[in-house]
Structure formats: structure tokens, C-alpha cells
């Protein structure tokens, strides 16, 4: 198998804090590789090393068959950092032409490419306006276009949908799927488990500077997730707290509070547990708004492995 990225035993320390601790990963060519983890897990540090911004203290990184520090390799990588990296006093066109120049793309090629990408992300009508007038979502999409302007082989997206509303998020997802279909490799750092779950062929879950597990989302869910998950939404927060303490204390269940009134209960046999939860709630005088049985997702995998929630 060909790999777009091979990282072995990467260690990176900042001011005596280990941001990356013996991280190894292999990203196959042509796949969407999700880096999933909470803020501070080390995703951005790992990305900085992959795109050649910083060097590891220890370990080896090969990107597209070479060192990411070489300009020739960098020219084949498209990078969208968390900061948009756009000049507020320039228009969308001007910002994109700037990045086209940086990557050595001719103005004619850049114009065609910008039109195509802007169309896909729905920002064509805004390109003549100064970026300072853009909303956060518009800037984010323009930033993604800037990362793709030179038609790179490897695309590294750091939290590309943070702050986007659901409709726009879907258009970004569509673009990522298109990239995969056209044979590009995408590394997608995100803390949205749904995004990683839906888009990734492979996922590495990171926590505290380490990759704790990696594999396809299905594989991870079946191996590390619970057989089933029951989600209970109660009328009030105090009721949720009461039910949580009862289920965890008396029945020994793994109960996670995922919202003020929402509990997520990992279980083996939901058919047996659902009547028990409803009768307990009745006895305690708690009013349930919603009760449903769900398949486990990557959030549950993360919960299972770390005891903490992924999304804050």
C-alpha cells in the first residue's frame, strides 16, 4: 500500500510539556484520514509537523515520499490552518491570487480554479468584497479554497468546519468527498465525532499527545464501543442528575451527561434496560421527554477509552 504520510515515533515537547508523545501513523494515499480528539490533544502539533512548519524533537516523518521541509514536497501539500490566514483589507480574489502566487500558479489557472472551488462552496458572490466584511463562515470557506488553489495531492484541513452552520458544513463535507473521489489524500483534524465518522476512511483518536486508537470508524466502534447506547432526555436538569446518580450508583452503569438534561447510557442489552429505566424514573417521579436506543459512535469510543467526553 502507498502512504501519503508516514510518521514514526514522533515526540514534540514545548516548554517541558510533551505535546506529542511517541506518535506513529500511516495515512494511505487517496483516503480521508481523520484526526479526532479534544482541544489540546496534539492534533494541531502533529499537523504542523506533517506540513513542515515545525520539526519533531524525535522521530521521522515522510510526506509524499520526502521530507515536509523540502519546498518541492510542500508545493504538493494544501494546508488550511485554524487561523484563516487571510488579509482583511484585501478582497477574496486578491487573497486567493496571493496564495496562487505563493504556490507558483499562473493567474489564468488560478482564476479558473478559484471559480470552480468558490462555486462548490457557495462564495462566488462575495469574492469582490474585502475580507473584513466577511462572516466567520465565509472566511473559513475562502480559507479552504486557498488551501486547494494549487490542486495539491495531500490536503491537510485543521478544524475546517468549526463555527460553520449545518448547511455550510454539509457543503464542506461534499467538497471533501469530492476530493477523495478524485484520488486526493485528505487529513482532517476535527473535534466533531460526527464529521470524522461520516467522512473518514480511517480515524486516529488522539488524547494528551498520544494516538490512543486508530482504524476505520466501524472497526473502532465495534472493537471499543458498547453494544448499545440509550439516550434519555429529561424535563429538567435536576431530574437528569437524580437519574444519573441512581443508574450509576445502584445499577453500576456507565452513564454520561452529554447535555444539561441528556444522559447517554452504555449497555449490553437495551431491551432489558429500557423498561428498568422507565420504571425507575416513574418511581423517582422523574419526567422523561425522549428515550431512544442508538448505535454507538466515536464519541462513545472516546468515552469508553478515556472516561471523558470528546465534544465540550
Amino acid at each position: 500500500m502507498d502512504y501519503a504520510v508516514i510518521a514514526e515515533d514522533i515526540v514534540k515537547t514545548y516548554n517541558s510539556v510533551r505535546a506529542l508523545d511517541d506518535v506513529s501513523l500511516r495515512v494511505p494515499v487517496g483516503c480521508v484520514y481523520g484526526l479526532l480528539g479534544p482541544n489540546g490533544a496534539g492534533k494541531s502539533t502533529l499537523i504542523s509537523i506533517i506540513v513542515g512548519v515545525s520539526k519533531p524533537d524525535k522521530g521521522k516523518v515522510m510526506v509524499l515520499g520526502g521530507s515536509p521541509l523540502s519546498p518541492g514536497i510542500r508545493a504538493r501539500i494544501g494546508f488550511q490552518p485554524q487561523e484563516h490566514g487571510l488579509h482583511p483589507n484585501l478582497t477574496g480574489w486578491e487573497n486567493l491570487f496571493f496564495y496562487a502566487g505563493i504556490y507558483g500558479v499562473s493567474p489564468r489557472d488560478a482564476r479558473d480554479r478559484i471559480r470552480e472551488l468558490a462555486e462548490k462552496l457557495g462564495i462566488t458572490g462575495y469574492l469582490d468584497k474585502p475580507v473584513r466584511t466577511y462572516s466567520g463562515g465565509l472566511r473559513q470557506r475562502l480559507s479552504i479554497v486557498a488551501a486547494l488553489i494549487h490542486d495539491p495531492e495531500l490536503i491537510v484541513l485543521d478544524e475546517p468546519t468549526t463555527g460553520l452552520d449545518p448547511g455550510i458544513r454539509k457543503s464542506v463535507w461534499g467538497l471533501i468527498m469530492d476530493l477523495r473521489r478524485s484520488g486526493k489524500t485528505v487529513i482532517l483534524a476535527t473535534h466533531y465525532m460526527e464529521e470524522a465518522d461520516k467522512l473518514s476512511d480511517e480515524v486516529a483518536i488522539m488524547d494528551k499527545g498520544r494516538i490512543i486508537v486508530s482504524g476505520s470508524p466501524e472497526e473502532l466502534k465495534s472493537r471499543y464501543g458498547p453494544p448499545a447506547v440509550i439516550e434519555v432526555v429529561l424535563r429538567e436538569q435536576s431530574m437528569a442528575e437524580k437519574l444519573e446518580s441512581y443508574l450509576a450508583g445502584n445499577l453500576g452503569l456507565q452513564v454520561n451527561k452529554t447535555g444539561a438534561e441528556t444522559l447517554r447510557i452504555h449497555c449490553r442489552d437495551p431491551d432489558q434496560l429500557v423498561p428498568e429505566i422507565t420504571s425507575t424514573a416513574y418511581e423517582l417521579g422523574l419526567s422523561i421527554s425522549v428515550l431512544r436506543v442508538l448505535k454507538p459512535d466515536l464519541e462513545d469510543v472516546f468515552l469508553k477509552l478515556t472516561g471523558r467526553r470528546l465534544e465540550g
Binding site: E83, L86, I102, Y103
Partner: peptide
């Protein structure tokens, strides 16, 4: 401006 990281990852850094 947030452009430095992007520029450092480019071939023109």
C-alpha cells in the same frame, strides 16, 4: 493575521 503558519507550510517560506 494568521498568515504566517500558512506561509511557513508553503514552498515560499
Amino acid at each position: 493575521l494568521g498568515t504566517l503558519k500558512r506561509l511557513l507550510a508553503s514552498p515560499s517560506s
